[in-house]
Design a protein around this nucleic acid. Structure first.
Lengths: 190, 190
DNA sequence: TTTCAGACCATACGATTCAGACTATTGCCC
DNA sequence: GGGCAATAGTCTGAATCGTATGGTCTGAAA
């Protein structure tokens, strides 16, 4: 069976959290990786069944009340996950950013559009930075010891990059952005 | 009819390029927005027909040889595009980054995995920066006058952010990343 | 003149993904 | 025992996806 990113998301989440119900997964995803990659929750209900069929998860069904289904990793599941983690990652990230698309097409619109767009993006990215910082705070100064907090740092770096860009654009000072970048990364182009 | 991001991609591209065949669109996309957002080319063949049906594009079919179909914007099409460009953009960008996912689940793998991942990402982002810089060069120092070059600047800013992160991770110096960021964005959290 | 490579161009299709509406259950407070 | 929020799960039609396949045109080698 072909394993998709969603498959590994499920395997990974169960590896980190221990045995989980689809609802557990849904909540865990929405409070972590869901911030940068959206996975529709319906998949988190159907995917575990596929994985169980393939022998990568073991299923345990409550025999009273809601009959919740709890899935746990099998040896094969853990192996599949480990192999994925160790394998090369050739795909470059994909940045699905509607704002960037609109910016690209701005010639077809009016200049005020760009202005409004930039201000809106600044607000959005500041808000997101606030959320991420709050998460960092909640885990205390020693949070960085926790491996799964590390991605937050990547998220913050990206958010700040976007914020700098839209701010420079709003202030009509893209040249300064370029100069700053050149200064900071002295290795220069390539 | 419900217009998707792909719809606006097609409308926008035709607005920028003038009348185009699906193949034109496919190439234009692959050399521009395709770098940050992947659109499967099959859609660029089917979507124009939907838009033509909705009256947003006009269709002109070659009457010899390949019978290529050329689509151009109608008034309604231009209006739809303008409205989209002027409308708010509530969605936050989505960063589909398999490397980030793997990093999040790294507890389930081995430390060498993270190391390999980081080195690979550094290579990838440096390569991509090279590509973007080459594009900038090709358009000369005055390139920034061209509106559609602006998105490249956002792309570069994001690439450098990712590069800084993975470099810091490889060097085990995430704290420095945080300090640098705090220094650069003195407004602090939020 | 034939043929062949390689670019150009287009469609088809089954599988997966998707949004989001909809339903049902549970625990708890009043 | 009514109301409500949180919990938990299902369904559906539509959109999207990757990929395989199959034409067509140009130019240069043979």
């Amino acid at each position: 069976m072909r394993l998709s990113t969603t498959s590994y998301l499920v395997l990974g989440m169960i590896a980190l959290r221990g045995p989980s119900t689809p609802y557990d997964l849904k909540r865990a995803v929405s409070r972590s990786v869901g911030y940068f990659w959206h996975f529709p929750h319906a998949q988190l209900y159907s995917e575990p069944d596929r994985l169980a069929e393939a022998g990568l998860l073991a299923l345990d069904t409550e025999d009273s009340g809601r009959r919740r289904k709890t899935y746990s990793l099998t040896g094969a599941g853990r192996t599949a996950l480990r192999e994925w983690l160790a394998a090369p990652t050739p795909e470059h990230f994909e940045m699905r950013d509607v704002a960037e698309l609109k910016l690209f097409f701005n010639e077809a619109g009016s200049p005020e559009d760009v202005d409004k767009l930039a201000r809106e993006q600044i607000r959005q990215h500041e808000e997101r930075i606030g959320i991420y910082e709050a998460m960092v705070d909640r885990h205390g100064a020693e949070g960085w010891a926790e491996p799964r907090m590390i991605t937050l740092e990547l998220g913050l770096e990206m958010e700040h990059a976007a914020l700098r860009f839209w701010t420079a654009l709003a202030e009509g000072d893209l040249d300064r952005l370029r100069r700053d970048r050149a200064e900071r990364d002295p290795r220069g182009p390539i």
